[in-house]
Design a protein around this nucleic acid. Structure first.
Lengths: 349, 349
DNA sequence: CTGAAAGCGCTAACAG
DNA sequence: CTGTTAGCGCTTTCAG
């Protein structure tokens, strides 16, 4: 009896029960802090757990309880620093509440996204935080409608009763555009992501509203929103800059900035002398390049934090079924990349 | 019999068996393509599956089979573009092989890391790809030694019989340093991550070797490797640059580059006139800033791909227990940030 | 408050 | 080749 021959490969709740001289159920109750357990028994069980180095098997727990203490996070692009920042924001909140996070990357591919979501559900995640590739897509809507797992959307909206946390791309773009218009620019180019996400659509709206408020016609030929990648930014900027009525200013999303700068170099233009530039979403590149680029800075960590809290609310069965739509604020950071059109002064403010 | 009253909430393998008029076991066999099943029966089962819209419950599968078709990926920092690129490299390889990827972020925190690894194991992931926070740590080594889940390390080595995929930080740093020495620099500063990872140690070795080969003494006072964050890079560069024998060149890791540039601006120095700069790890910032920074470019996607393939090998029970250590190559990209010390010529090469 | 018993949904061993 | 039978390790009734 002294040396227990061959410790079982995996030690289970059963061994703990034996060791503590109680029943299975009691051990389970201790584990789940459910139903009052007599202090003495509880001690015995806790000791047995320590003695044996017992660790519950979450797979078995999930099978039985249909829960998992896991939150699934679906992102379109892990390489995008902005979405990475959002994830960093939501991690501590959820971790503190005892949830493990599993991230998955869809590469903005609807099929992968659908698979991942399915996987999450089947694996009984307790909740999901999603940035879908296309929030305007009927298949996506259908999948999410019937999803029946607590869900929060980040930076996307969809015509469903779900919590959404959004940055104010409308206002950001509006302010950037107004600023440029105020400087005297009229030929302003907008280079952004496709209108299949909230961000894409809101930027477009903000851009148009800024022109509308001044009664100036929107330069539709300078709007580019067909691609997400770096090369698209370059090509879009290039084409805005070479027409016979070229753009004198560009409003570009953070992901496109590098491409825009490439085009500017290619054409040997100076910023802000020949061209003014504002970026939607602040990045290291924008802050450090010369001249530093005036930017709208969105608070992605806050967005993540907020999404996490909304999910936690749902998980704790909080305030009924009142789904929310939260808009996170931003700042306008004026740096040195804007001047009146054709100005020779090196900078403005 | 026509209208089955109230479809059960979750439909199980049992329902499929009933519907197809076969036994549980047969359905399972069809699902797992195991043991030959008569073509006719197989058809019936497949039809039933489609009819009922049946989807296997992976939690139950895992509980029974002790597998999961899931690979866990542990990263130290999701916000680091380099590691994000590595993940992007390994995703398609593993996805093609039918595995789902769950990523987790340790924030370089040993405790989180340990938890995540434990979670992965308990949830019966089939394999893990890890970048541990400190590959020199005894607790880490102990955990990994007894881990008993197929494992591949990325950009870390440890005194254990495991597969490792590494970039050649030794050679990269050696070449960068040699290049600077060849230009005539002697006061070269190395700003890099702590020596608690392969990268940190190998960079240091490469740096020292370059000096050693020329019989020049290593400027130890200019070596900074205590922090990972952006501000650390700035402070380290600053202190290298203000002494009475300031550095005339800096070799900085990619993550520190932004900080270094800040310090350079603060001190109003020109690159490469006053200071030469090489970065270890190419980034968008390095390529686009003026002057563009000479860089060692590591192939992170290839590193990820390679790690994925090694893991797949293990999973398919491939070539016995021969663990490998693979070194991925890199390029030296000469741009405009280096010149002989105190040179007035704008650039070199 | 505690023990016994019944599964969660599936795979795998065993007969047939 | 197929059906039956045990469980995987746990939670959750249900009695007591």
């Amino acid at each position: 009896m002294k040396n227990k021959s061959a410790t079982p490969a995996t030690i289970t709740i059963k061994h703990v029960a034996q060791h503590a001289g109680v029943s299975l159920g009691t051990v389970s109750r201790v584990l789940n802090r459910a139903g009052n357990v007599d202090a003495a028994l509880r001690r015995r069980v806790e000791e047995a757990i320590l003695d044996l180095g017992y660790e519950p098997n979450p797979v078995a727990q999930s099978l039985r309880s249909r829960q998992s203490r896991v939150i699934g996070v679906l992102m379109p692009d892990i390489q995008n620093p902005l979405t990475a920042a959002a994830v960093t924001g939501l991690e501590p909140v959820l971790a503190r509440a005892g949830y493990t996070l599993f991230l998955a990357n869809s590469h903005s591919d609807r099929e992968r996204e659908s698979d991942v979501l399915e996987q999450f559900k089947r694996r009984r995640v307790d909740g999901v935080i999603v940035m879908v590739a296309n929030d305007n897509d009927e298949a996506t809507r259908a999948q999410l409608r019937d999803f029946s797992v607590p869900l929060v959307m980040m930076e996307r909206v969809i015509d469903l009763d779900v919590d959404c946390v959004l940055t104010n791309q409308y206002d950001g773009t509006y302010r950037a555009t107004r600023y440029l218009l105020g400087l005297g620019h009229r030929r302003i180019s907008l280079i952004t992501v496709p209108a299949i996400t909230h961000s894409g659509r809101e930027r477009l709206r903000g851009f148009e509203a800024a022109f509308g408020d001044l009664g100036v016609e929107v330069p539709r030929d300078l709007i580019h929103s067909e691609g997400r990648q770096h090369p698209y930014g370059r090509d879009a900027a290039y084409s805005s800059l070479i027409g016979r009525e070229p753009a004198t200013a560009i409003v570009a999303s953070g992901g496109h900035l590098a491409g825009v700068i490439e085009a500017v170099r290619l054409l040997n233009l100076s910023v802000p002398q020949h061209l003014s530039l504002v970026t939607l979403g602040d990045t290291e590149l924008a802050a450090l390049i010369e001249p530093p680029i005036t930017a709208i800075r969105y608070d992605w960590p806050a967005t993540g934090r907020c999404a996490a809290e909304l999910l936690l609310d749902q998980l704790s069965g909080g305030h009924g079924a009142t789904r929310q739509r939260i808009i996170v604020t931003h700042e306008f950071i004026i740096r040195g990349s804007c001047a009146p059109p054709k100005a020779s002064a090196p900078r403005t403010v």
